[in-house]
Design a protein around this nucleic acid. Structure first.
Length: 650
RNA sequence: GCCCAUGUAGCACAGUGGUAGUGCACCCCCUUGGUAAGGGGGAGGUCACGAGUUCAAAUCUCGUCAUGGGCUCCA
């Protein structure tokens, strides 16, 4: 075997360097500059994250990564996960380690710890132990497992059954261990891991353990119950603090918290979990949204329908829900000896309306919309405020059309989605989910449906990603993710072309040729559920609804008793103009009443004193812009109306 | 459903074995105040529910329910 004694490396700036064979990324960094070497935390080799000490081979494109490269945070977090695992095993020698991947904004590690339940108190101790490991500047050394069976024996004798299981699976994939060594080169701890990692734990300076939770080995509830610690790490203390601060800010927006402060909704033990009571304030918001929703649909040719909340089981036998969706449906109730069910979905009902008469191709498309309330069983542990509930109202529509019309219909839906999401101030991103491995229908049908979805997006110039194989077994779909005011992701609109129900219900139309054809059916929800959407909106707006949605739009505040009469007249005038007004004539100071209106996020406050009585004016204060000075009542009304009309968020 | 934590007045919290406390909100009185808390007084809780231990339980134990953080799934 001929040995090249030199290797050629390409650097990001396009230049090349020649190194001796066997040199590592660290050597390269050193050669470029001592400063770079000191800052180096890892490599990107041909675009892939790698250890700093990876031996370089001929032709590699190598980038030396420092903490400034965004990808390198992954190295930090993954390495910190190992530090955490080491610390946990030090404190709880009986702990067995499972997996510890990085996740968005942090990492976790799963453990099985017999006869100890981790609690938040343990976290401080683990953190302290981690700090010691970081300060000890342990080296993380990659080690190729030569003798898999020997290593398996070792894991098994240590009782590390999870690691053994993983190694057995990866025995043919060049499995590696990472050895964590002290400064004398003694291995203190090791973990089966693909890496890559930081060269040393000394680079770990800012981390925080966040919470403990339960999990299952491989996410399977029939397998071992594990204990998981969630944590995060950043390069600097400041970044960590900023992140923790962001979490706090998010907590302040929590819709459950704001619900109490702003009197929005409640749930009741007497009623049952996951069932929402909409208080007048939030009911007002919802009403405004629904009116807007209706008008946007009406102008796009939708027709509104209402369907029953319970139906004979027979309906769900035909639809296949009893077969495929049973675990989410409530038990049957007996009505005159017949089994009935609470409806989990609106589609079968809409199909009933469609099928109530013979449809011609001339009737199509039919766009049927309903704010349809459905009931679904959700396991008790997943319920969450308004975001995950057991009874909710979907803004559900079904479009019945011919294959030729499909693309145009999809395009119309995308237009509607864009209009609504833009109004609420959400940025969004679309994903096209294609045929999964387990699917019904023919390739041609999938091609027809998926193609229509994709072409509609392309023609609109939409940015989208393809989620290969992510479709439902009966439908390709477009899923839209929303990004709220603080950049958090929410599940948004969804569009599905159903290849299943038209067949099951024999949904058809008479074509130009006089023959019956299966109708193409599209399911779509834009807001999703009113519960989830409004819950999300509360957080998006941090409780400060834009004027067009605000439960109270104006607080009218007379300065003293002698201004009451004029204040009442003003309040009535505004109410007559369909404004939502709160007249606050309590004998409290102006400051006090302003403060309260501010804290209730009331968009406008109008103060009425001598000057205003005299000039038939109002002194206007905006919740964000402060005192806007005195203006004629008619001018104020115009200002409000314009703002409502534009649905602005000021 | 599973793991962990929590449950005290409308809200936010203190109280760890000896018959329940603070702030805000609420009600009353004084104050009539020009843009984020004027002053005084009052009322309000079978300490989530049920059982047990104890002379004595908000406090310890067990069970139930609900809530929260996750696991899994989804609108």
């Amino acid at each position: 075997m001929s040995v090249n004694t030199q290797v050629k490396i390409k650097l990001p700036d396009g230049s090349e360097r020649t190194l001796d064979q066997g040199k590592t990324g660290a050597d390269l960094a050193k050669e470029i500059s001592e400063g770079l070497f000191r800052k180096a935390v890892g490599l990107s080799i041909n675009g892939e994250l790698s250890d700093l000490y990876t031996p370089l081979t001929d032709g590699m494109e190598v980038k030396i990564l420092t903490a400034d490269d965004p990808q390198s945070i992954e190295l930090l977090r993954h390495s910190t996960a190992h530090v955490m695992a080491q610390a946990v095993q030090k404190l709880f020698p009986q702990a067995k380690i499972a997996i510890g991947p990085t996740i968005e904004n942090g990492f976790y590690y799963d453990f099985e710890i017999k006869d100890h339940s981790l609690s938040t108190e343990d976290l401080a101790n683990i953190e302290a132990e981690m700090k010691k490991i970081a300060e000890a500047k342990q080296r993380l050394v990659r080690y190729n497992i030569q003798d898999v069976d020997k290593q398996l024996n070792e894991f098994e004798s240590q009782g590390e059954k999870f690691k053994a299981e993983l190694l057995r699976e990866h025995r043919d994939h060049n499995p590696t261990l990472y050895l964590m060594q002290d400064k004398d080169g003694n291995t203190i701890w090791n973990d089966l891991c693909r890496g890559p990692h930081l060269p040393s734990t000394g680079l770990i300076k800012a981390f925080k353990l966040l919470k403990v939770s339960g999990s299952y080995w491989r996410g399977d509830e029939h397998k071992e119950q594990l204990q998981r610690i969630y944590a995060t790490a950043f390069w600097t203390k400041k970044d960590l603090e900023d992140y923790l601060h962001k979490l706090e800010e998010a907590e302040k927006r929590d819709h459950r918290k704001l619900a109490k402060q702003l009197d929005l909704f409640s749930t009741h033990e007497e009623v049952g979990p996951g069932l929402i009571f909409w208080h007048p304030n939030l009911a007002t918001v919802r009403d405004c949204i629904e009116n807007y929703w209706r008008s946007e649909h009406r102008r796009r040719g939708y027709q509104f329908v209402y369907t029953p909340h319970i139906a004979s089981e027979h309906l769900y036998e035909i639809s296949g829900h009893l077969e495929n969706y049973k675990e989410n449906m409530y038990s049957p109730m007996d009505i005159d000896g017949q089994a009935y069910r609470a409806k989990p979905m609106n589609c079968p009902g809409h199909i009933m309306i469609y099928k109530s008469k013979l449809r011609s191709y001339r009737d199509l498309p039919i766009r049927m919309a309903e704010l349809g309330t459905v009931y679904r069983y959700e396991r008790s542990g997943v319920l969450h405020g308004m975001l995950r509930v057991r009874g909710f109202t979907q803004d559900d529509s079904h479009i019945f059309c011919t294959p030729e019309q499909l693309e145009g219909e999809i395009s119309g839906i995308l237009d509607l989605i864009d209009a609504l999401m833009t109004t609420f101030g959400y940025k969004y991103k679309a994903y096209l989910a294609t045929k999964p491995a387990q699917a019904m229908g023919t390739d041609e049908e999938w091609e027809m449906a998926t193609g229509a979805l994709e072409r509609a997006m392309q023609k609109r110039g939409m940015d989208y990603e393809v989620d290969e194989g992510g479709g439902a077994f009966y439908a390709p779909k477009i899923d839209v993710k929303l990004f709220d005011a603080i950049g958090r992701e929410w599940q948004g609109p969804t569009v599905q072309v159903d290849l299943n129900l038209p067949e099951r219900f024999d949904v058809n139309y008479v074509g130009e040729d006089g023959n019956k054809h299966h109708t193409v059916m599209v399911h779509r929800a834009v807001l999703g559920s009113m519960e989830r959407f409004c819950g999300g909106l509360i957080e998006h707006y941090a409780g400060a609804f834009p004027l067009w949605l605000a439960p109270t739009q104006v607080a009218v505040i007379p300065i003293s008793d002698r201004h009451q009469e004029h204040a009442r007249k003003t309040a009535k005038a505004l109410t007559d103009l369909d404004m939502r007004v709160h007249l606050d004539e309590r004998s409290e100071t102006i400051n006090y009443r302003i403060r309260e209106a501010q804290m209730q996020q009331t968009p406008y406050m109008v103060v009425i004193g001598d000057k205003e009585v005299e000039g038939d004016a109002v002194a206007v204060r905006h919740r964000r812009q402060g005192d806007l000075g005195s203006m004629k009542l008619v001018d104020f009304v115009e200002k409000m109306k314009a703002e409502v009309e534009k649905k602005e968020y000021v």
